[in-house]
Amino acid sequence: MNREQTVTEGIAQGAAAGQRLEAEIARVMVGQRQVVREIVTALIAGGHVLVEGVPGLGKTLLVRALARAAGSRFNRIQFTPDLMPADITGHFMFERENKRFVVRKGPVFCHFLLADEINRAPAKTQSALLEAMQEQQVTIEGRTFPLERPFLVMATQNPVEQEGTYPLPQAQTDRFMFKVFITYPGEEEELHITRRVTHQAVGDALDLEAVRPVLTPDQVISLQETAAGLVVDDQITAYVVRIVRATREWNGVVMGAGPRGSIGLLRAARAMALLEGRGFVIPDDVKQVAPAVLRHRLILAADLHIEGYTPDHVLSELLASVDAPRT
């Protein structure tokens, strides 16, 4: 078997694994296909996800299902105003029996972390998590602890209740690869959810028994590495940069995406190409992931906000105006 065949097989396996992952999540997560696709894409691209949606739409369920399907460890932190950085990263404590300090690792040491309502904690606590996300390591009392791969943070924000919150600064939201909107399900889907959740069930506990582990953490890492090895033509890279630069020149956008946006867009496009079973990236991959990658990196002018425009409106127009590559 030559190298080309190995690569082709790896891509086919990667695509199949991604599809299996999506199928497993879909066992408990009714509808929200786009959200599931974006979360799986983020996992393969090795990026973190900021989820925005009102409470009760299945954000926790989604991450727990993903963690279970990927055979990985899952932790959840409920962000509150009195949450301290050490509550996330961990701390040293004195062990009386052995008369020495030992490290008690925080919830950040896991594969999948759900940071619920991240904007309810002060900036100091937020930045502790965001540093871990960027560096993939945690420093406690001067000692550095690497985080185990794969490491995916899914932070949620409630767009409705903004009182007493600490909105994430732009520099921090930029560290999320994707911003995903979870919207209300359709009538049929809601009917289906209601029936399934209430059928012979007591209480609010999430039933994840239906989700089978289809991957291991090593296989997830392998998927990420396969995606990183896909062929990316120079025209695609130039297209990505053109889109990101256009966000800085667009009227009504006070601040556009930075180079981290270009990097995130290309990585996400690679993951999307792998999920589609292709060994190379095409412009459609870029276009498909661009809204989720760029929407939280744009700051719109006040008048656009007042008139009800959202970054998605701007991105839609922007993508329709940037020339696609023609090699």
């Binding site: 020149e249 009227n251 002018a301 105006s321 696609a324 023609r326």
Partner: peptide, 18 residues
């Protein structure tokens, strides 16, 4: 009131590169 007019100072493109 330049919003919605596309790129700043950019005119319509003729065709797509080819």
């Amino acid at each position: 009131m330049g919003r919605g007019r596309g790129k700043k100072g950019a005119g319509p493109k003729v065709l797509f590169g080819m």
